[in-house]
């Protein structure tokens, strides 16, 4: 087990080094001179030259990347071009908010989707199943920023139950978390249903039924456990969608997380901040997938036995 975890951890490093290089490269394509952007059009040529030197902008890209990596290992992600504050500090301050939002959303979607998926599968083609699947498909097709606006109109402006934005207490968390949860709820429901359907037709389920095991026990102990493996995969993948969705949801609800920070930084052409945000997003996504892979080993002993 430990061997497996270590092996998976080792795989994380080359990917992260690649991710940071890729993002670094993409962002370096930004047209315009960074020094001029920071100092403004009125700056003297001398000052621009000094600043270029200070930021190492005249070095080849690969050297800039190397320097960035050396700083990054020490927890330094550079300074914001627009505020001069430390990027790492700003992200550290904002990250818990995004974490709170996405964790609540994934928790909500698992809580809703697994039971609906299981019931739909055990009563295939019933009214519950048909309506459930139509609703799930509509859920997948709704863009989160629109859902967010509609929820604000209904529950905040018309009914006044929840605040329409900002982050003050638990009430302000509910609408954005639900907005974010809808799409992933829909796709986890669909996966749970289809993998349940596949498992239910297996011989060992027939055997269990023939032995006289109660229906509830067959579903919970024999079927669900095996059907969960694809569902867990989708939960991992959905986390990526969720992190992407956080950028939009945080914008709609003025939620002070790194998604909104990233959008604001893009508008201000604040390159180091954008770079920092993308790296943190990619790292969180990779870590979640690592956790999912380790979870597999717990759910499915066959995987564990491969590595022990």
């Amino acid at each position: 087990m430990i061997k497996y975890v270590i092996r998976r951890l080792m795989m994380l490093f080359p990917v992260m080094v690649g991710v940071i290089f890729l993002v670094f490269f993409i962002i370096s394509l930004t047209p315009g001179d960074v020094a001029t952007i920071i100092l403004g059009d009125g700056a003297t040529e001398e000052r621009i030259k000094d600043l270029r030197e200070e930021l190492g902008l005249d070095d080849p890209l690969i050297v800039q990347y190397g320097n960035y990596m050396i700083d990054l290992v020490q927890g330094d992600m550079g300074k914001s071009y627009s505020t001069g504050l430390s990027v790492a500090g700003e992200i550290k301050q904002r990250f818990p908010n995004t974490f709170k939002l996405t964790i609540t959303a994934i928790f909500l979607s698992v809580l809703i989707s697994i039971p609906i998926g299981v019931i739909s599968a055990t009563r295939q083609y019933s009214i519950f199943d048909n309506i459930g699947m139509i609703v799930a498909l509509i859920g997948i097709s709704m863009p989160s920023f629109w859902t967010g606006l509609i929820l604000i109109i209904l529950f905040s402006l018309k009914l006044g139950w929840f605040p329409s934005g900002g982050m003050k207490g638990i009430m302000s968390l509910i609408l954005p978390a639900f907005t974010l949860a809808i799409a992933s709820t829909a796709s986890i429901t669909r996966t749970t249903r289809s993998s349940m359907l596949e498992v239910i037709r297996q011989d060992y389920i027939t055997t269990a039924k023939a032995k006289g095991v109660s229906r509830r026990s067959v579903i919970n102990k024999h079927a669900l456990k095996n059907a969960l493996i694809p569902a867990v995969t989708v939960i991992g993948l959905e986390f990526g969608v969720l992190l992407g969705g956080a950028v939009l949801t945080e914008t709609v609800f003025s939620w002070p997380g790194i998604g909104r920070l990233m959008v604001e930084s893009i508008q201000r052409k604040d390159t180091p901040m954008v770079l920092g945000c993308v790296i943190v997003f990619a790292l969180s996504f990779s870590i979640v997938n690592l956790i999912i892979d380790i979870l597999y080993a717990f759910i499915d002993p066959r995987i564990k036995s491969n590595y022990s």
Binding site: M16, V19, V274, A282
Partner: peptide, 10 residues
Amino acid sequence: AIPTILLAIT
């Protein structure tokens, strides 16, 4: 490793 929409945004 980068969520699709975030890559597009970048």
